[in-house]
Design a protein around this nucleic acid. Sequence first.
DNA 1: CACTGGCACTCGGGTAAGGAGAGTGCCAAA
DNA 2: TTTGGCACTCTCCTTACCCGAGTGCCAGTG
Lengths: 343, 343
Amino acid sequence: MPNAELHPRKQAVLKAVVTEFTVTAVPVGSQQLATRHFVNLSPATIRNELSELGELGYLVQPHTSAGRVPTDRGYRYFVDFLMEVEPVPRPIDSYVREQLAAAPPEVPALVERVATVLAQVTRNAAVASTPHGSRPRIKHLDLVSLEGAEILIVLLVEGNLLRQSVVELSRPVTQAELTRLANKLNRRLAGREREELRRRQAALGPDLETEVLGHLDRMLDRFERGGESLALHDGVRNLLRQPEFAEAARLHEVLEVLEESRHLASLLQDLVADSDLEIVIGSENQTSQLRSCTLVLTTYGPTRQLRGVLGVVGPTRMDYGQVVARLRTVAHRASERMAEACA
Amino acid sequence: MPNAELHPRKQAVLKAVVTEFTVTAVPVGSQQLATRHFVNLSPATIRNELSELGELGYLVQPHTSAGRVPTDRGYRYFVDFLMEVEPVPRPIDSYVREQLAAAPPEVPALVERVATVLAQVTRNAAVASTPHGSRPRIKHLDLVSLEGAEILIVLLVEGNLLRQSVVELSRPVTQAELTRLANKLNRRLAGREREELRRRQAALGPDLETEVLGHLDRMLDRFERGGESLALHDGVRNLLRQPEFAEAARLHEVLEVLEESRHLASLLQDLVADSDLEIVIGSENQTSQLRSCTLVLTTYGPTRQLRGVLGVVGPTRMDYGQVVARLRTVAHRASERMAEACA
DNA sequence: CACTGGCACTCGGGTAAGGAGAGTGCCAAA
DNA sequence: TTTGGCACTCTCCTTACCCGAGTGCCAGTG
C-alpha cells in the first residue's frame, strides 16, 4: 500500500472525520469540520480535501449531498498511522484490577470474568478463549474409574489449566490399579513435556500404561491446538446501543458467529497467529457475517507460551484509541492475575 | 382464581385467539376468527365473546378498533386449561438424540450442547445450569500442590461433575504428603456423602487432614447450593427474529439478565424449586426485565437428586404447546445421556 | 497557486394530508 | 341468542412538501 504518503493536512482531515464520526455516528460535513477542528480554514477548502480523500478511497458519501463516512480503508489508514492510543484513566485500571482480583482463581471462572470486564470497560462485545499453547508441561494427572472400561482422565497442565477426558480402555480396570498408575506417572511426568511422554510410550510394550499414555498424548495434542479451549463472549447488549445494530438483521449475523462457539474458537485461533495486536476492520474479515464489524484482538495468559485470545467486537465505527488501550490493559492485568496463581 | 369456570365457547374463542396470535403476531379480529376457526358463527357473535373476554381480563385491544391480543392472564388461562402439548415430530427427536450422542461426555461441554440444541428445536433462547443437588456422593478427589501453601483440590462428585478449588493451607506441604493424603481420603470417602466427611472431621485433631476436609466440606456446600454451577444461555439470535424484539431496548433488558450469569443462576435456582415444569408468563416474572418474556423451565440431570435447570426464554407470544413438548424431550434425552455416562 | 465566498443543486428526514382497510360497538330484527 | 347493517375509529401506507445540511463548481483575491 502506498498509503503512508499522504499530505499532512489530508491526514489531519481524515483523522478529524474518523474522530468525529466515532462519536456522532452521523456523516460529517465540511461545515462541522471547519468550526470544530479547523477554525482557520474555510468549509470550501475542506470540501476539496474531503473530495480528494474520497477519490483515494478513504471516505465515502452515503449519498450525494451527504457528509463523509470513513471507509474500511479509511479506518485502516487511521489505525495504522493516525490513531493515538489514549492512556487508560486511573479509575478504569483500578476497576479492572479489582474485578480480576475478586474473581475466583480457577481458570474457567476467571476467563469468564475477564471477558465480562473487557466488555464493560470497552462498551463493546468481548470474546475470550482459554489459554493454551505448544510444549505444555504436565503438572499433575489423575485417573478415575467410571462405568465398565471407561475411565476419566483429569489432567492439570502448567498454568493451572484443568482438562478432563472420558475414555474407554480396552479392558476394565480397578480403581486401585488406576491409582497406582496415576501415582507412578505423576512421579515420572510431573513438570515434563509431551516429548518425554512419547519417549516413555515408545519404550513400553502394549499394556495399561501405554494405553493411558496414548490418551494423555491425545489430550495434550488437543491442548496444543487449542481444540478444547472454550471460547466465550459477553457484552452483546453493548452492541444493541449502537445505531449500526438498530435493525435486528445486522446483529443476527454477528450472533451467528459469536454463538457458534466452534466457529468462534477457530476464528480466534487463526487470527492472532503472530502479532500481539491484531485489528481486523470490516471487510477485512474472512468471516462474511462480521464484515460490518471490527475485531481488535490480543493474547493473554500466565506465561509467554500459554496464551489465550482476548478481543473486542464492535462496529467499525469504534473508538480505536480507547479500545486498544483498554484491551491491552485488561490483557495485561489478566495475565498478571493468572501468572500469580501458578508460577 | 375463578378462572376455571368459563363457558366452553369462550374457552374455544380464547384458545383460537392465542393460537392465531402466536403465529401471526398481529391482533386478531372477529372476521378472521369467523372465517378460520368458527365457520358456523357470524363475526358479530364472536365480537360479543371477544368483548366479554376483554372484560374478564383475558384479552386487550392495543387501541380501539383493533383486534384482540391475549393478556398475560389470558396466556395463563390458556396454559393452565387449554394448551395441547403437541407430540414432538420424529425427526426432531432424532436430531436431539444425535446431537447429544455426538456431544462430548464431559459435563461442561455437554451442558453447553444441551442448551444449543434446546435453542435450536424451540427456536427461542435457551438457558441451562449444571446439575447439582443435595447429599452429593464423593467419587474421587485429588490434591495438587501449587505455589507456597496453596493447593488445588479437584473433586469429582457422583454424576461425573468435576469441581476445582484453589485454597491456601496454613502451612506449605509437599506434593508427596498431599498424594498420601489424597490416596487415604479416596479409600475412606469414595461413594460417601458429606455426613461421613463431617464425622471424620469431628473425630480428628487440628492437622492437615482436618484442614483439607474443611475445604472439601465447603466445596460440597457450594455444590449443594448450586453456587458454582455455571449458568449459560444460547440462541439469543432466535429472539431477534421475533417482532417483539424489533426495537433494541426490549432485547437489551432481557440480555441484562441473561448475560449476568450470577443473576441468571440464582433466578433459575429459585424458580424450579418444586414442580417439574414451571411456566412464568410476562408480568408474573419477579425479575422486572423479563416482564415481556415467558420462561418455561424444567429440570434435568443424571439422577433424581442431581438436577440442573433447563429452560426456554421467549416472548409471551410463543407456541406453548410446542415449546413445552420439546423442552421435555430435550430434558429427557439430556438426562438419559448424562445417566449413561456415570451410572 | 492556494484559499475563499457565492451559488445552484441534491437528497434525506420530518411533517401533513388523504385514503384504504380492518376492526369495533350498537341496535333492531329474525 | 344470533345476526346483518351501519356509523365510527384508528393504524398504516402513500404522496406531497419543505427545510436544512451538504455538495461541486467557479470566479475572484491575497
